[in-house]
Amino acid sequence: MAVLSATEVEQRPTHPPKNKARWTASEEASGLALISPTLLYAVALLFLPILIVVAYSFWTQDYLTIDRTFTLQNYKTALGEPIYQDLLVRSLVISLVVSVVTVTLSYPIAWFISFHGGVHKNLWLFLITVPCWTSYLLRVMSWKVILGYGGVMNTGLLSIGIIDKPLTSLLYNSNAVVITLVHSWAAFAILPIFVSLEKVDRSLIEAAHDLGDNKLMSFLRVTLPLSLPGVISAFLIVMIPTVGDYVTPKLVGGKDGVMIATAIQAQFGKGANWPLGAALSVTTMVIVSAMAGIAVLALKLLVRMAK
């Protein structure tokens, strides 16, 4: 008995450090250690700037100094001024149109590669990424060459005889922005849709045919609902960055294609009103998140109805 209690007493103090040693060797600890550089990087370069932007949005700029008293005036301006309302609505509409068009055009491509790519699937995917090898700026500029007054499109249509004088409606408006953005983002939409289509068990499609569906019905009732995760991620991947796109509207948008990013840039630059720019940014961020959520729900609802 005495021997037993002695060992107990001896063991007790060694217990906590032993536990600690075990934790540092655990999977949890090694996992945290593995992600910590990335985590720190993400925190430092993502959350901190956002926090600073949010903070700025509640302050006021007084020529060269910042007045750090809390105010909601910037949000009142951002949400109340007709110019910002217009810009925000236009940005959202353009990004929505771009996402819808991109996903609609990308889906058949992804479907074709997944179902009929055969042994060349990887080659097809490789070819799709080829345009991304050049600079984003160059790709946008090349659309200027295509859509311009004396551009490829106009001269082409002229030589076929469909039009008798060059169209001016191609470039420097929101259509040009949509066309350019759709092209830029197509590869990013095709990949997630392709991945989700690859995951669709082919025997499910056979089962649908076996149970009486023709090809269109089995697509609508099986393939499409099961590839929905890919469609949703494609939608979000395209929609979220395009709302705040700055380069494309600047280069091909003209007066008609100005989006919210241009206004934000103006506040941080010539306008010298960082707080208002910050408030515009935060407003855009919140509205985009809400829109994304609504879009996801709407897509899910649509599929449930097709069932």
Binding site: D201, S203, L204, E206, A207, A208, V222, P225, L226, K307
Partner: peptide
């Protein structure tokens, strides 16, 4: 079917 091919979304 061999793997039964039960529709997972239904």
């Amino acid at each position: 079917f061999q793997n039964y091919a039960i529709f997972p979304h239904l």
